[in-house]
Design a protein around this nucleic acid. Sequence first.
DNA 1: GACGAATAGTTCGCCAGCGAAGTAGCTTCC
DNA 2: GGAAGCTACTTCGCTGGCGAACTATTCGTC
Lengths: 204, 204
Amino acid sequence: MPATRTSSETPGETTGARSSGELARPLAPSEGVTARSADTEDRADRHVARWRDHWIDVDFDDEIEAITVRIGLISKFFDDARAAAASEVGLADFEYKTLHMLMIRDTPGHASPTALAKDLDISPAGMTGRLDSMEKAGWVRRTASVEDRRKISVEATKAGIEIWRRAMDLRGEAETRLLETLSPERRTELAALLKQLTLRIEDE
Amino acid sequence: MPATRTSSETPGETTGARSSGELARPLAPSEGVTARSADTEDRADRHVARWRDHWIDVDFDDEIEAITVRIGLISKFFDDARAAAASEVGLADFEYKTLHMLMIRDTPGHASPTALAKDLDISPAGMTGRLDSMEKAGWVRRTASVEDRRKISVEATKAGIEIWRRAMDLRGEAETRLLETLSPERRTELAALLKQLTLRIEDE
DNA sequence: GACGAATAGTTCGCCAGCGAAGTAGCTTCC
DNA sequence: GGAAGCTACTTCGCTGGCGAACTATTCGTC
């Protein structure tokens, strides 16, 4: 347990972990941050500022807090974009997610219900429900395996693949639109920094 | 609509948008990426590689795809950490989220149900349900307003505040543990890059 | 000062997902 | 070769959330 963040009631005692200082920091050391991004507050900045006002006895590193908030905001943006893309073409969010997972796996277009459930982080029971409604809608098909009659293969239908592709294109547009805010060099930097974190996560 | 990503069936026609090339890129141009992070694949790398193998006719920028996948993974890590912290102290995930939103707002500890529902991105009906069960559990209290009898104020109880603080400390530990993977300078870089994106999002 | 519109919150019926229990089929091993 | 145990999927009852009415109160306007 590093970074012991006690609920101590000693207000002024936590200066050590704090980052530089007031809200509009002088300018990040990393070269070439645009003026706009340096002196304009985003929601994360405002959150941290409010936090400092009201919960002065909580020992938080401002920058870590800001990063987690921003990751959450960006992730929400992607989630919303995905949901919007799905509904645009007439898919429920869960239908898109299921089709997507089905298509991007190493055996594109078919999988066992259990494997799919694991990938989607839902229970086997939930998977059954999804497949029931999606089979009825015509996006997937269940076919029994011959060599092991317990096994079932879920396959995307032609219609399912088609509609998924349309939703995916819309979704990709939104993602691209956002990330083109950054220059290619910046994107490479960002990708590398994020990768350090995902590798850490995969190490458990 | 930038980045027209059609569902065209012309496989080799999309080379323009691709980033550098094979999976293990020579090494990102950004200074000082650790060796480990440059030559080890993470889940996003594997996803992109598989993608390229199976969906060669889809026009994706590898790096943009990798970034979105990584943001998703990191966000999921934070979500899981939050849920684990909540259950550790005996709170349902939705209870923690509600208490948290109640406490971090500019009027810490109390708010109207509608305002809270908006912040939490759930419906008014859902809010009523949450408050019913949380009031029964003793984490919040509903008090009627005097000057406008339609209005209700939701307030966190002492017990609610206490248990929220305990969960939050646990959650913060997990976040700190992950982000300490990066040096303070790297964290500053990351925060700045992410801020460019959140500012863009806030611009709509 | 009274009637219509707007607002705050609750109630109702529905749906997606979960956990636990149930069923069916394969595998192992004596 | 058959009983025990594992695996794959389904069924059932419950819960959190949504959207759409509904109730109560205030505001706006003439």
